[in-house]
């Protein structure tokens, strides 16, 4: 099973129970609506102490923002020490014990999700883990468990895809005909269906369909050949130039000797 979340924007009433549950199960401090000291300037409600947030949109639309748990995640590919890990099951977890705090994961995320704890003297990266430890205990993610309208549901990614497709088919007039997260950057584990466009969840539009890590891997996979090639090239150049100079010197000496002999004769 590939754990996934499907959020149906049409069912969300914006009660923020999910935010409260997230704060509680992840021990992110006290939950007080609207009282989060916002050190970040991103303005979407996410922060080091808010791993999920509800974004209000005109016309009574509420969109819950959280880590998308990409199938081929940029943050995991970017992390130089493997502190960002894609678990075998799929959720992306973070190991603060080995994190250097370089913030490359934050720069790489196509959805702008990971947040840094700027207020701390020793800051770490913060983001939703799809409640990986709870999943291992056989529990639901905190946000899904409390959602009163089943706007956000948990399940296997393939089954949720089927469910999303079923809802789109059943009420084609109600929904934007698109499952957000099906193909974006290679697919995500957190899926959305919605009656409004959700492009604002992407850091920048348009979001390509190929996974982001492909872009660096296209270069990185050539590292061994470049290393060998440069060694051979510089060694070869050295050898060729060295030999030419030696030959030139020998020729000059030979010439000199011959001339001397000629003069002697």
């Amino acid at each position: 099973m590939k754990p996934a979340i499907l959020t149906d924007v049409t069912k969300c009433i914006g009660c923020e129970k999910c935010v409260e549950a997230c704060v509680k199960v992840n021990n992110l401090g006290e939950y007080k609506p609207g009282a989060e000291p916002r050190v970040q300037e991103v303005g979407d409600g996410l922060s080091a102490r808010r791993w999920t947030a509800v974004v209000s949109k005109p016309g009574q639309h509420f969109v819950r923002k959280q880590c998308r748990h990409c199938l081929d995640p940029a943050c995991v590919s970017a992390c130089p020490v493997g502190a960002m890990q894609k678990t075998a099951e799929g959720p992306i977890t973070y190991d603060k014990a080995i994190c250097m705090g370089c913030r490359y994961c934050i720069m790489a995320c196509p959805f702008g999700i990971p947040r840094y704890d700027w207020a701390a003297a020793v800051p770490y990266v913060n983001k939703c883990t799809l409640c990986y430890t709870r999943l291992r205990e056989g529990k639901l993610p905190g946000c899904v468990e409390v959602c009163p309208t089943e706007a956000t549901i948990f399940g296997d990614r393939d089954e949720l895809m089927a469910e999303a497709a079923r809802r789109l088919r059943a009420e084609p007039k109600k929904y934007v005909p698109h499952i957000y997260g099906e193909h974006e950057v290679g697919g995500t584990s957190v899926l959305y269906i919605s009656d409004i466009g959700l492009d604002f969840l992407n850091y920048k539009n348009p979001l390509p369909e190929e996974p982001v890590p492909d872009r660096t891997w296209a270069v990185m996979r050539h590292v061994p050949s470049v290393a060998v090639g440069m060694t051979v090239l510089s060694g070869g150049l050295y050898w060729v130039i060295e030999r030419r100079m030696r030959m030139a010197r020998l020729r000059a000496e030979e010439e000199g000797r011959r001339r001397a002999e000629k003069q002697k004769r």
């Binding site: 995991v76 590919s77 970017a78 992390c79 130089p80 020490v81 493997g82 502190a83 080995i98 994190c99 250097m100 705090g101 370089c102 913030r103 490359y104 840094y116 020793v122 800051p123 770490y124 890590p213 660096t216 891997w217 270069v219 990185m220």
Partner: peptide, 18 residues
């Protein structure tokens, strides 16, 4: 952010990362 972990790449390898 965690400067005393600067040596980590020497031990914790992640060869996909530039």
């Amino acid at each position: 952010g965690v400067p005393w972990n600067i040596w980590r790449p020497a031990v914790n390898w992640q060869h996909h990362s530039v």
